[in-house]
Amino acid sequence: MSTARRPRITFEDIGDVTVVKFTDKKILEEQAIQNIGDDLFKLVDELGRKKLLLDFTTVEFLSSAALGKLIRLHQRLATGGGKLILCGISKTIMEIFELTKLDKMLKIVKDEQTGLNAF
């Protein structure tokens, strides 16, 4: 018997952009980060999505381990001619991106609509 795990993300296709939302306020736990990574990579590797817009509106905390997943996702998409954009990031979480200089590497915009227009 297999047990289905709780989904960590939801996604919706708007045109050729896949908008991803997170179901957790805190992206901290190792297993949760692994599950989120698996779900995101499945979108790219198995479902063939090339334009991902990750909406962080619900997210209050984010660890450095989660940053690692985002970097790998960015690399995977870039390798396959795709693109990753982040939006809805709170001021405090934005500090994490700025301190780690990832705001220079990843494209970050204010909100979903801006993101949809940025691909």
């Binding site: 780690t100 200089k101 220079k104």
Partner: peptide
Amino acid sequence: DPCAPENLERPSGRGLLLIRK
């Protein structure tokens, strides 16, 4: 240093930086 250009794309090594900052 995870902020060095050559390390920016490495997926690990940012925890200590966040603690320090």
